[in-house]
Amino acid sequence: MRLPARSGSLAQIRRRLARAASGRAVVVGIPLLWLLLFFLVPFLIVLKISFSTALLAMPPYAPLLEWVGHHIAALRVHLSNYQLLWSDPLYLDSLLYSVRVAAGSTLCCLLLGYPMALAIARAAPARRPLLLMLVILPFWTSFLLRVYAWIGLLKDDGVINNVLRSLHLIHQPIVMINTTFAIYVGIVYSYLPFMVLPLYANLEKHDGALLEAAADLGAHPWRAFWRVTMPLSLPGVMAGFLLVFIPAVGEYVIPSLLGPANQLMIGRVLSTEFFENRDWPVASAVAIVLLLLLLAPIVIFQRYHNRELEAER
């Protein structure tokens, strides 16, 4: 028999509770501090710099708070960067272009990914892991190299044009590289696993008896799909859409390698302002505007995501 537990004097109880609480505080505190420091604080710095003006110095922006007298500090908040974004059509155009391209390619991704996810979910259970693995496998290989592969395919003297020419289907190469079409291809291709996975996770949970019940009640399989499977899968559609759309708006690598040179997506604008023009305040303002634009989708995604994790319990 174990020794009877020590009777709890008040001081002992307090000490024990404190110890248990401190253990928890460490588990919560370390990642929380890390994320605050390396995720939240940086945004505040970006926000601060976006209200500043560019300088030819290092760092190349003017401080917001400046000592002008002995005890007088001047707070210099400039809205000029945001005015610039609003007045120069370059920024607004590229922002709208980014949203349009991201939304369009996400939709294509959905149209391609949904049947794939459904096919895997309806495959024999023994075959599902393999099929799923085949969809995920490209995701484990380099994103950059997979985008790069499309240059070789889409070029004027690339694989696709060469094949079409050798089949005498065309005489002049079809211009595909450095077009919006190429960005579409690149985004759909790179983000397809992110669409298929949440869709599959949702579809796989559907009770097969639901379709049998629909059939029993006289619904043709197509109708059963539209009335039962589709509505039930909407949370998965939502998750997949956001998981592709949000990062696609700010996509930088794909438009850089495949996109047109005269029509820039917002990610490239930001990078150009920062690295080539060295205008940090404008780059920061672009980042803030982009973030504000994506705030609503991000919040929706978080809600959905956390609910999913709770529901699994």
């Binding site: 990642p31 605050l36 940086p42 970006v46 949000i246 708006v249 920062f274 982009l290 995604f301 978080q302």
Partner: peptide, 25 residues
């Protein structure tokens, strides 16, 4: 809630924003 938000946000945050903000940090 804060921890949950901070752990899910990076999943979808455009890299370009994360990169810029970390450099400025």
């Amino acid at each position: 809630a804060l921890l949950a938000a901070l752990t899910t946000a990076p999943l979808v945050m455009p890299e370009i924003i994360t990169g810029l903000s970390l450099l400025l940090l």
